[in-house]
Amino acid sequence: MEELRIMAEQFKMLGDSSRLTILALLREKELCVCEIVDIMGMSQPNISQHLRKLRSAGLVTETRKGQWMYYSLSLNDKPHIEQALSHLPSLSNTISAMKPGCCE
């Protein structure tokens, strides 16, 4: 029963379009929070709140590089989420079109 509760919480994270977009971006590559802010056109506190929820659900990990926080997917033990995300459209063009970010 605990495993089903955890899976339900993880799937709940996919129900928000902003979090789903963040996950789709991170499917392409590891990104700095400032890059996610730039791509999504949302405030840094708003993006950080979504990332905090995704991190709490175990879907993303964060790594500090200097003063910047970088985020990447953490799906090795979550094939059910990986399968769901495999159906998302690629956002590689969106990422490649972004201008050099604050973290470079």
Rank of each mutant, 00 (worst) to 15 (best):
E82K: 13
R52D: 07
G66N: 13
K99F: 11
M42N: 08
Q10F: 03
D38G: 11
S90P: 00
Y70W: 12
R5Q: 13
H87N: 01
N76L: 09
E104D: 07
E104Y: 13
V33C: 02
R55F: 00
A8Q: 06
E104N: 12
R19W: 13
L88H: 10
A84C: 08
L4A: 15
Q83M: 03
Y70P: 01
Y70E: 03
Q67N: 02
E3R: 09
I95D: 01
S43M: 11
A57P: 01
E28Y: 03
L59W: 08
L26D: 14
R52E: 05
E9V: 09
S96V: 15
K99S: 09
A57M: 03
I47D: 00
M98L: 12
L73K: 02
S92K: 13
R64C: 03
L20W: 10
K12Y: 03
K99G: 09
L25C: 02
I36T: 06
N76Y: 06
T21Q: 15
C32A: 15
K29W: 01
I81D: 02
P100T: 11
I6M: 12
P79E: 05
M40K: 06
S90F: 01
E35N: 06
S72H: 03
T94E: 14
S56K: 02
M13K: 12
L91V: 11
C103K: 09
K53D: 02
P89M: 07
A24M: 03
C102T: 02
I6P: 00
Y70F: 12
S96K: 04
K65T: 13
D77A: 14
S43Q: 11
Q44R: 12
A24Y: 03
N46A: 15
S72Q: 12
K78I: 13
I95S: 00
E35H: 03
D77F: 10
P79L: 00
V37T: 15
M13F: 04
K65R: 14
A97L: 08
S90R: 05
C103G: 08
S92M: 01
H80Y: 10
P89I: 07
M69P: 00
C34E: 13
L4Y: 08
L75K: 09
R27V: 08
Y71M: 01
R55I: 05
S56H: 04
S48A: 11
S86A: 15
K65G: 06
I47N: 05
Q83S: 01
T63K: 15
K29S: 04
Q83N: 10
Y71R: 03
L14N: 06
V37P: 05
V33M: 02
T94A: 14
G66D: 07
R64E: 10
D77M: 08
L91A: 04
S48T: 14
M1E: 05
S86T: 08
P79A: 15
A84I: 12
L73Q: 07
P45Y: 07
E35G: 00
A97W: 10
L20C: 07
E28F: 01
E62W: 08
S18H: 09
K53N: 14
A24E: 04
S56C: 11
Q83P: 02
V33L: 07
G66L: 11
A8R: 11
A8T: 13
L51H: 01
K99C: 02
E9N: 14
E35W: 08
I47H: 02
N46M: 06
